[in-house]
Simulated assay, not measured.
Amino acid sequence: MISLYCTADTIGTETGGGIVTKNELEALKSVSEVGLVLERDSIIPSRFQQPDSPFLFDYFALEQICTSTLHFDIAHFYSGTFTLSVKHLKEKGTKVSYMVPAHDREDSIAEFLKLRGSYPYVHIRDDNLWRIFSEGYRLADVVIAPSTKSAELFKSEGCRNMIVIPHGTNLPKDVKPLPDRFDVGYLGALGPDKGVIYLVQAWTMLNYSDSRLILAGSGTEALAPEIRNIAAEGLFVLLGRVASPSDLYNVCSVYCQPSVTEGFGIEVLEAMAHGRPVIVSEGAGASDLVDDGVTGFVVPIRSPEAIAERINQLKALPSYELAEMGQKAMRKARNFTWGRIRKRYARLFTSL
């Protein structure tokens, strides 16, 4: 069985997309001969002296598919828009699967407009361009979503064959006990729809003198002026980029993912694998994996009050109860190792 793998992401980076694409490709290699791999560097428009456009990624992918002498039995696409490529492959008899780590389009646009005054992704904002962008998913034989929320969003877009396979995590080698001081952590990007503003607002409402909110990830090191504009109270630590995710998880007692909308949120599973209870918004797809009140809590989106309430509840627990909740989170995470998730991908690929 000859296969094709295609993504506009860079396979194997430390980003969510890089991690997922690495594991998808490994799964595809385990059940087929991968004849062609197309990733960001090989199809990015600037390589061909063209302006940046998601639709041009598709054009240059199609060009390379058409010049290949191989017939592909199956093809898998990760995210982005590859409508022309999918159409061409379907006409040749190729079975196509597509991963859609979908955000809620309306919530994402609303959050950008609220916090930044504009939305930068015209292909998502414009209804006509969005229909073109999403057509490839409707044409695919099967669409994989990492969460029930993502699946529901694309069912409403007309995708006829949806399956939910959550993202996974690697079990960490170095897991430290919960620290003596109760600190809350966040690791990730800072886009408006990540909801970090609501976590910061919750923290200033609590105004603890003996606990810190630790923010990590590229750009967090420069957040001090912005934080003080919205949060006059509270202790904050801004780590910036960390060498390893464990550098954040091992120094906090609780992890919080306050996303307004996010297809999954791998950091949630990573934190659980480190034995940390989690507070996760309903907007993050990883909330599917949180047993409310057992491994952490699920809270409404855009609600600093709900985040603050759950942080306060966890802080008030005896240390042994908080640690036990963390151990339950760790046991739950072990059901979603990348090894297990790759097997689920592989079974799907062979079923096409």
Rank of each mutant, 00 (worst) to 15 (best):
T169R: 09
P179K: 06
M205A: 13
L178C: 03
V200D: 00
P172K: 11
L187K: 02
L206N: 04
Y208D: 04
D210K: 06
T204W: 10
V200F: 04
G191K: 12
T169W: 01
A189Y: 08
K176D: 05
N207I: 06
G168M: 05
L199M: 07
G195E: 05
L187H: 03
R181W: 01
L199E: 01
S209M: 08
D193W: 09
A202V: 07
V196N: 00
S211H: 06
A189V: 00
A189G: 14
Q201D: 13
P172A: 11
V196C: 03
T204Y: 10
N207H: 14
G191Y: 11
G168W: 01
I197V: 15
V184Q: 03
G168E: 03
L171I: 15
F182Y: 12
A189M: 11
G188C: 07
G191L: 13
D183S: 15
N170M: 09
Y198I: 00
L187P: 06
V196I: 15
P177T: 04
G195H: 06
L190E: 10
D174E: 14
G195T: 09
G185L: 00
V196P: 01
L206D: 03
I197K: 12
L171D: 05
P179M: 10
A202M: 06
Y186A: 01
P172D: 10
W203R: 02
W203F: 05
D210R: 06
L187M: 12
D174C: 12
P172L: 11
K173Q: 15
D193A: 07
G191H: 13
R181F: 07
P192T: 05
R181G: 06
Y198V: 01
D210V: 07
V184A: 07
D193L: 04
V196R: 00
D183F: 09
V200A: 04
Y198A: 04
V184M: 06
G168C: 11
G191S: 13
M205I: 11
L206C: 08
P177Y: 08
T169S: 11
Y208A: 09
D174I: 13
R181N: 13
D174S: 13
G168K: 00
D193R: 13
D180G: 10
R181V: 15
N170L: 13
G185E: 06
